[in-house]
């Protein structure tokens, strides 16, 4: 299966790439070898993350961004993440509904992914799926996270440019001062800009950003621009793509390509190792040794803290 798949993927075969993505999602033992073969062919794609509250218009915005990038002849891969039900393990992946404008365009590859219990706004498989699209030669890869609240910010390590989508009417200015999501934006997208409260939202963000600048001085800090968009009509999308381009230039200035690639490699290795550890943790928690350990804690022969240390030690063996 391996040889066939990686050759087909490098030749741009969608079916083979789609199958590998499924092997990745299913944690199939054949996937890491195939990915290792693809790795030398990666590193050229520009990765853009889109995150924000549920219903803020992320998918509609992605649809418009695809149009804009396609008009420049960039090919676009898109990974759209939606939540898995914690009860049934099933999911409804509905982001494509808003991306219908690109049906039939061979320069666009959209893949819907379920979180399968992973927290952080992405699926465990997302970093490897980006690798697959990168190896296929897509110029731009858009990653739409699940609709996130405040702390699901894993996207920032995976994307070159992170967009945080805000909409008016979701809270007062103390929300803007909270940590997490608000700190990761390279560009703030103020969507649904036809709503009257948009100017209030803009003011709140501006206040928040000016305080940040005074309290965390940093040479490489760049104040994220605020871009008004109306994803339904397409208003402001050209300005948004301009802001993404500006941020890309900024990255080129502060980090040489080699260093950037190093950052990306570091993230990838961490993500792969974390998945491996999670898998070991899962098997360690479903073993007779684990049951024995729990018996000891329940009988009062062992305290839970020592038991946890022993469990952790078995994982690393």
């Amino acid at each position: 299966m391996k040889d066939a798949l990686d050759h087909q993927i490098l030749a741009g075969n969608t079916r083979a790439a789609a199958r590998l993505m499924r092997l990745i999602d299913d944690r199939h033992p054949a996937a890491p070898d195939i990915l290792a073969g693809l790795f030398p062919h990666t590193g050229d794609a520009y990765v853009i993350g889109i995150t924000g509250n549920p219903g803020s218009g992320k998918s509609t915005l992605v649809n418009q961004l695809i149009t804009e990038f396609r008009s420049r002849n960039d090919t676009v891969g898109c990974i759209a993440v939606d939540p898995t039900s914690p009860f049934s393990g099933g999911a409804i992946l509905g982001d494509r509904v808003r991306m219908q404008d690109h049906a039939g365009d061979d320069g666009v590859f959209i893949r819907s992914v379920a979180t399968r219990g992973h927290l952080g706004g992405l699926s465990r498989s997302t970093p490897a799926m980006v690798q697959v699209m990168d190896a296929m030669g897509f110029d731009v890869i858009l990653i739409e996270t699940v609709g996130v609240g405040q702390d699901e910010i894993e996207i920032v390590r995976l994307a070159d440019t992170s967009l945080v989508v805000m909409v008016p009417g979701l809270g007062d200015d103390i929300q803007a001062d909270k940590a997490g999501l608000m700190e990761i934006a390279d560009v703030f997208v103020l969507n649904k800009s036809d709503r009257p409260a948009i100017s209030q939202l803009r003011r709140q963000l501006q206040t928040m950003l000016s305080l940040h600048h005074q309290t965390s001085p940093d040479d490489t800090y760049r104040r994220p621009p605020l871009i008004n968009t109306n994803a339904l009509t397409g208003d402001g999308i050209d300005a948004l793509v301009g802001a993404i381009d500006d941020h890309r230039l900024h990255l080129d200035e502060i980090l040489d390509p080699q260093r950037r690639f190093q950052h990306r490699c570091a993230h990838l290795v961490r993500a792969i190792a974390r998945t491996e550890l999670e898998q070991r943790f899962h098997s360690a928690c479903h073993s007779p040794d684990f049951d024995e350990l729990i018996d000891q804690v329940a009988d009062g022969r062992l305290d839970p803290y020592s038991a946890a240390q022993r469990l952790a030690a078995t994982m690393l063996r």
């Binding site: 898995t84 039900s85 009860f87 049934s88 393990g89 099933g90 999911a91 409804i92 992946l93 509905g94 494509r96 509904v97 808003r98 219908q100 049906a103 819907s112 379920a114």
Partner: peptide
């Protein structure tokens, strides 16, 4: 979905 499948919905008019 409730039976554990991952379901991709296409939207209308495909």
């Amino acid at each position: 979905r409730d039976a554990g499948f991952e379901v991709i919905y296409s939207g209308l008019h495909q």
